[in-house]
């Protein structure tokens, strides 16, 4: 199927500050998205794009909708793995899916009745920074988190995705770091965390994952870390996790050193 998108003007109409309350109310009170036809006085509020997608449905089975995030990130990425990065930044694509194909999912996951900020922050791209918006909007966030964590070298390419969705705070803490653009650095770091936990280490404390994320930033200030192989990043991150962990141990007398 070809994905239906929304035009810039239509997105502007939905997102305009003066219209947000009205649109939010329509989402809450209408059983489906038919109201779009009335708003735009058009039987076909969407326009067809060139982007192909295998048809699929989102998982809406969990009583706590947040529990479906990882599974839905995998489903969405699997169906749209082929789109280039610049297309994955295109607001028209995500808003087309939000108000069209995945309207029911959006209501399930981000029902504006459940949280005041859901409509603005999760249905729309509120203009709080283009990258930040991409990693916050309900659907684009799923695609981009899967994109950043997908590892085709593993038997299960979503192994690191699954790990990251279990530790969302960590995921949030790396996406704005500029080194997250380097696949070697990003996957080496995530794998180190995953293995550290698998080997019995605890990454529950914020100081642990924040510490290692900051450590990689520190490395990036002194070295061109993109020159390091994934294995080298992994080793450095794993060693740092051991160091932080020992430091946080109840009877530790070690002091912070670089």
């Amino acid at each position: 199927m070809k994905i239906d998108i929304l035009s810039d003007e239509r997105i502007d109409t939905l997102a305009t500050k003066e219209n947000q309350k009205t649109i939010e109310a329509l989402i809450q009170t209408s059983p489906n998205n038919e109201w779009l036809k009335d708003i735009f006085r058009d039987e076909h509020p969407f326009s067809s794009s060139k982007i192909e997608m295998n048809d699929f449905e989102m998982d809406m089975s969990a009583p706590n909708p947040e529990d479906t995030d990882c599974e839905n990130a995998k489903r969405l990425y699997e169906a749209l793995k082929h789109i280039p990065e610049s297309t994955a930044c295109d607001v028209r694509l995500w808003e087309g899916l939000t108000f069209g194909k995945f309207y029911d999912y959006m209501k399930y996951r981000y029902n504006p009745a459940n949280q005041k900020n859901y409509f603005r922050a999760r249905w729309l791209f509120p203009g709080e920074g283009k990258k930040r918006d991409l990693f916050r909007q309900g659907l684009s966030m799923l695609w981009w988190y899967a994109y950043l964590t997908y590892d085709e070298t593993q038997a299960n390419p979503y192994e690191l995705t699954e790990f990251c969705f279990k530790h969302k705070d960590f995921l949030i803490s790396i996406y704005m770091r500029s080194y997250s653009g380097s696949k070697n650095v990003r996957l080496g770091l995530i794998q180190a965390l995953r293995d550290f936990e698998r080997d019995g280490g605890s990454i529950e404390k914020k100081e642990v994952y924040n510490g290692v994320v900051k450590y990689i930033s520190f490395l990036g200030g002194a070295y061109l870390i993109d020159l390091y192989t994934r294995e080298e990043i992994y080793e450095k991150a794993y060693n740092e996790l051991n160091r932080i962990s020992a430091e946080l141990a109840p009877n530790s007398t070690k002091r912070f050193t670089l």
Partner: peptide, 17 residues
Amino acid sequence: ALFVVHIECSYTSFRRI
């Protein structure tokens, strides 16, 4: 030592040396 150019597009998470 190496001459290296670091190329980055933060928006699309593109980064290459």
